Simulated assay, not measured.
Amino acid sequence: MAPIALIGLRSLSIVIPAIPSTLYSILAGALFGLGTGILYIAIADFLACMLNFYLAKRFGRRLVQRMVGQRFMYKVDTLSSKYLENNIFLTSGFLMTGLFDFVAYAVGLTQMKWQNFTLALILGITVSTPPVVALGAGILEQGRWLLGLALLGMFALAMLTGWLNRRRES
């Protein structure tokens, strides 16, 4: 029962971005240990972000605005129009931040295909979930450093992708 409750609460906190979600990752590590905690959080994140993406694709901007609120809609607009549509690695990098719930909605408003979003999401979850769950499991005292390094690596890959795309177009 506890795993289902954790997955449900974490998913709800992603679909409704006003609810903080990081606590659930730490809690998963504390309750279930590193490996099982990562699995539960990865399942919740995958399902909820795919739902956010689907809702944005299917119902558009009006529903997204209702879900994230008028106040946060500028974040969604900025992310979707300027950065995410053509760069899987940058999308992955943004999915590793505390704004990943907004990012999933934002990408849903772009022309990005679900296959590309799924790849970016899996990459983002794979890199960002273990350090936070490890904090809860008590394994990684400096988990923020590992997360920071992972984010820097993803942004470096995103920049490389952009540079290669520009070079190819020239």
Rank of each mutant, 00 (worst) to 15 (best):
L119G: 10
P130N: 06
L121A: 11
T118C: 13
V107S: 10
K113M: 04
A104E: 09
Y105H: 07
L109N: 10
T110I: 05
G108I: 11
V132Y: 14
G108C: 10
T129C: 07
L109C: 11
A104P: 06
L119S: 12
T118M: 13
P130K: 00
G108V: 10
I125K: 00
F102T: 09
N116A: 11
G124Q: 03
V107A: 13
T126L: 13
P130T: 07
V107N: 10
T126C: 11
V133K: 00
M112G: 09
I122W: 06
L135R: 01
M112N: 05
P131V: 12
G124F: 05
Q115E: 13
A106M: 05
P131N: 14
T126G: 15
V127T: 04
Q111G: 13
V132P: 02
P130G: 11
G108L: 08
L121P: 10
A106L: 05
V103T: 14
P130A: 11
T129M: 03
A106D: 08
L135Y: 12
T129N: 04
K113T: 11
F117E: 04
L109I: 10
V127S: 01
L123A: 15
S128H: 06
T110F: 07
T126R: 00
A120S: 13
L119I: 15
L119Y: 07
Q115T: 14
S128Y: 04
G124I: 07
V127F: 11
V127W: 03
T129L: 02
G124E: 01
S128W: 00
F117T: 05
I125A: 05
